[in-house]
Amino acid sequence: MSLPQFKLLRPRTVEEAVSLLAKQNASEGLRATRIVAGGTDLIPSMQQKLFEPQHVLDIRRISQLQGIRQTEEGTEIGALTTLTEVEHSDLLQKNYPVLTEAARTVASPILRNMGTIGGNICLDTRCLWYNQSLTWRKSCGFCIKKDGDLCHVAPGGTKCWAAFSADTPAALLCLNAEIEIASSAGFRRTPLREFYTGLGDSYRKLAPNELLMRVILPRSSAGYRGVYRKLRIRGSIDYPLAGVAVALSRSNGNVSEARIALTAVNPAPVLVKGASELLAGKIVDEELAEAIGDLAARTAKPLTTSALTPEYRREMIRVFTKRAVLAVASG
């Protein structure tokens, strides 16, 4: 499959990048500039003609976006930091183990060498009816997410249910991460949980002229115990079919604060509402873990976006959440 034709832009600074973004977008509409970092998400999609941008903005030369740094408020991870770097960072492993564990499960070692944390946060939502070639989609009928106006997974529905399928955002939500976004108008910061819309098609709040710069992990989340559990068929390569991140802090054996987030079972990564309240001040036992698992399963809304059935994926959210909670509490 050939790539559609495009012009490659290669800025060296954030300022240059956002000014290029501001310039390109006004007239391009559907063919708006796409930003490429590791390329592991965008390139296959461009081959499938899911994106046919006039310009591709390659941000890999922008050194400002690289690396992991400790700051006063916590730890910053530049958007261009590879998932391999995240996985092997001693700093992150020590303070935010749930993130390194989630990073370690992404795709395969080779893809993690290319893929970046910024790309993982911005990862396009996925659906078996969407991530297909142009020929395939023509044969099937176009859907809401691309070129059409209806949904194959929820026939009759008008909402897109493509599943958000990145691993690290579930961990980042548990850590109360914030992200910093640049545009020609300046910089803005937003909690990660407000970045996602919950819709499968326009799944993130990132304007065409904006660039994700970094993710900030607050000091208050440092030292949380954490576990990430991922459902996939193969032990490598696969996107998550369901994912659960659990992070909690303890005092005197009791849970003091806890957050649980799910991925790959909704159009956005989601924090499980009520989990913190259920866990706070308690000692985790089998029964409590079970209750949390039930709560998580009710939060999950998987549909037929992937090979495994929705019922199975929901059930695994229950099992994995329970196991993750027990593992964190006993660790």
Partner: peptide
């Protein structure tokens, strides 16, 4: 699971 064909209006080229 799911459904293959549209049951409503599609884009022009479909």
């Amino acid at each position: 699971g799911g459904a293959l064909w549209f049951k409503g209006k599609g884009p022009e080229r479909h």
